[in-house]
């Protein structure tokens, strides 16, 4: 178990390094190849020659890529100073970079935005797991019934709808026409009730898309599991049907659902960008979209890293959960 954990953590570290490398390539090599000076992409609005030169010094853009990478990693653990153009800017650990465009360190921006995106993602996950599992199990139990057909057609439709379209429709109908819920985001600390009211639509919209896939998956797995020997045994033992389903069948059904959940964290980030754009939620997605528009590379790098990290960690958690849910899985 311990060796497994260590091995996994090592894999996590490797993965993060690769991601940093990939982002570096995107923002340093491609522009170079296209003939754009990377320094100009880091300067803010005041892009005169002197400030570009200053940024070049500060980011050590003239140094080899490896040195730049080393400096970046160093910053994460011990913080770093950006010196150039006669001034020094300190960025305390954990330094995920410093935006010369907005003159602020990236880390506080991330810690400010991450909870918002997390609350969106987690809330939606709760909703979609509930919907997906319930619909999937019911469909499997009543296989071939009208309910099953309707539910599965609905699920297919759910997968086929762009989230920004459903989101806008939902906003138009529930927030503007019927005025049932708030159409804006309110921070939780300011007014929990309003926060909840503002998050309902984003949660449901996001859950609609993912829930549809989970319903299909749950149904398929459930059908398969119901045919297994041990279920027959359980029934033969005289266990009541709810116990058979709830205790035995559900356990096996949860395994692929969990796997999917792990994989989905990455996809969820993409959907969060779209959801946050549609509902004007000030989360990571909106921050990164703005950063991409502004070519605010340090922020993009920071967001990418933090999302990638959460994806990797989520996958780790999922793997560990296997052992809990399915006794057949042994970690080692």
């Amino acid at each position: 178990m311990l060796t497994y954990l260590i091995r996994r953590l090592f894999a996590v570290a490797v993965m993060l390094v690769v991601i940093i490398l990939a982002v570096f390539c995107i923002f340093f090599l491609i522009p170079k190849w296209a003939g754009i000076d990377p320094a100009t992409m880091f300067v803010g609005k005041q892009a005169d020659k002197a400030s570009i030169e200053g940024v070049r010094e500060k980011l050590q853009l003239d140094e080899p890529v490896l040195v730049q990478l080393f400096e970046f990693f160093k910053g994460i653990f011990v913080g770093r100073d950006y010196t150039g153009g006669g001034t020094t800017t300190h960025c305390a650990a954990p330094c995920f970079g410093y935006s010369f465009r907005t003159e602020q360190a990236i880390w506080p921006v991330l810690t400010d935005r991450l909870p918002v995106t997390l609350s969106l993602a987690l809330g939606a996950a709760v909703v979609w797991l509930f919907i997906g599992l319930t619909v999937g199990v019911l469909s499997a139990l009543k296989r071939g019934s009208l309910w099953d057909r309707l539910a599965m057609t609905g699920a297919l439709a759910g997968v086929s709808l762009p989230i920004y379209f459903t989101g806008l429709l939902a906003l138009a109908v529930f927030a503007y026409q019927l005025d049932l819920v708030s159409n804006t985001f309110t921070p939780f600390g300011e007014n929990p009730a309003k926060w909840f009211s503002g998050m309902i639509l984003p949660w449901i919209t996001l859950a609609f898309l993912f829930g549809a896939m989970y319903a299909r998956l749950t149904r398929a797995t459930m059908l398969e599991v119901m045919g297994e020997d041990y279920i027959r045994t359980a029934r033969a033992k005289g266990l009541r049907e709810p116990v058979v389903i709830g205790k035995h069948a559900m356990r096996s059904t949860m395994t692929p659902v969990l796997t999917l959940l792990g994989v989905d964290i990455g996809a969820l980030m993409g959907s969060a960008i779209l959801t946050e754009t549609t509902f004007s939620i000030p989360g990571l997605g909106q921050a990164v979209l703005k950063a991409i528009n502004d070519r605010d590379l340090p922020l993009i790098l920071g967001v990418t890293l933090i999302t990638a990290t959460s994806v990797v960690i989520a996958n780790l958690v999922v793997d560990l959960l296997y052992g809990v849910i399915d006794p057949r899985v042994r970690l080692g």
Partner: peptide, 20 residues
């Protein structure tokens, strides 16, 4: 495995935005 776990949309947007 790595590509599957990547926040892909994010990468695609970043890539496109630096393309000439």
């Amino acid at each position: 495995d790595m590509l599957l776990a990547f926040p892909q949309l994010l990468f695609i947007i970043s890539l496109i935005s630096v393309m000439p």
